[in-house]
Design a protein around this nucleic acid. Structure first.
Lengths: 210, 210
DNA sequence: ACCTGAACACCGTTCAAGT
DNA sequence: ACCTGAACACCGTTCAAGT
């Protein structure tokens, strides 16, 4: 753990850790590559050995976030395999709480401000994996007769949009009476959105929803 | 329209126009106050006569975006007063298309990266106005027996989240097969999301949706 | 009131150079 | 291979000064 060892072969990790700390403190806008290098105890040009430019470092940070999110979603789905509706609700809950646990990272991941679409295959991979998982749950729910027998893609996109939208509204503090910090109120909103999206808005003669 | 007149009393507007152009071209990250000043034909310190700092300029830009969006939503709602479901679908369409028509401005408005929450009352006002309008539509729909008789706020939040989430996913180019530029595919997705959110995902014995 | 130019403390990135 | 220090062209912001 001495300086020489720390900066020997593991500088990339050290830079990512430093960047993650600074990101959480000040957001992506206030994060400077020079500050990251300084925090890692290295000259301000050293990062260029490991990242093509600043965007590449932020990109790596976002990629890690997508990986963690995908894992959390899969774990949530694995917990209630025989109850598709519950799987969706739990996955939605994990999606929102994971993002809000690291708001600056989530803004980085979802804000679309970094050149994340720079063909870094990690995003595509994580996104596709998550979306495929979602579609599989829906398919299972249809096979079990719990979900409507509509085409899967519209259903999946709607669920994803609803949960993603809630995250973004909370992150941007655009929901009037919620200062984005109250976990209980956030939990309530998650329930609202997932349950309404599952049940729909239109009037129905035979409710039958939990 | 000579230089002297242009920079006389209307520099604020000129700066906002220059900033809007640069924003559309390069995004908020690549927008420099000095470039805005240069484009407006003025020294790089002149903007400080009209905006406290760079964030204030961006904030004004976002505020204008919220105002335009709120107007569009109200116009859409006014077009189909006697058909609440149609009002919601049309408002959703306007929400998505307006944002995608000026993607960089939308990222600025919704990304949560600018200090928009700096108590600029315009955001709160525009947001509340839009949300209240949404709740009124739902209320009318319930009175007409078209919508479920559930509490209004969860229904409103769910619709808002779904449409907002679709916008953000498209803006971040996080939807696998849509390069965010194809209007026909975007229109399809809007229909999917609004209709599924209205009808729900769960199986229902008596469909009855349009 | 409104604008300017110099100045300050930062940036990201490049490049020759050191080990 | 990996890191450094100087250098370049930018930033946002402040401030004394001009009209």
């Amino acid at each position: 753990m001495n300086k020489a060892a720390y900066h020997h072969g593991d500088l990339r990790t050290a830079l990512l850790e430093a960047a993650d700390t600074l990101l959480a403190e000040q957001g992506a806008a206030g994060l400077s590559l020079r500050a990251v290098a300084k925090r890692a105890g290295v000259s301000h040009t050293a990062p260029y050995r490991h990242f093509r430019d600043k965007a590449a470092l932020l990109s790596a940070l976002a990629a890690e976030g997508f990986r963690l999110l995908a894992e959390g979603l899969e774990a949530a789905a694995a917990r209630h395999v025989d109850d598709p509706a519950r799987q969706l609700k739990e996955a939605g809950r994990v999606y929102v709480t994971t993002a809000l646990a690291h708001p600056q990272r989530a803004r980085l991941m979802f804000g679309g401000n970094v050149a994340l679409s720079d063909h870094d295959p990690v995003y595509q991979a994580a996104g596709e994996r998550a979306f495929n998982g979602l579609q599989q749950i829906i398919h299972a729910g249809q096979a079990a007769g719990v979900f409507r027998d509509d085409p899967v893609r519209p259903l999946a996109l709607s669920l994803w949009s609803a949960v993603h939208g809630l995250v973004m509204l909370l992150l941007a503090e655009q929901i009037g009476d919620v200062p984005a910090g109250d976990p209980a109120r956030v939990a309530t909103m998650i329930s609202w959105v997932t349950e309404v999206t599952l049940s729909g808005v239109l009037h129905r003669d035979s409710p039958g929803n939990s």
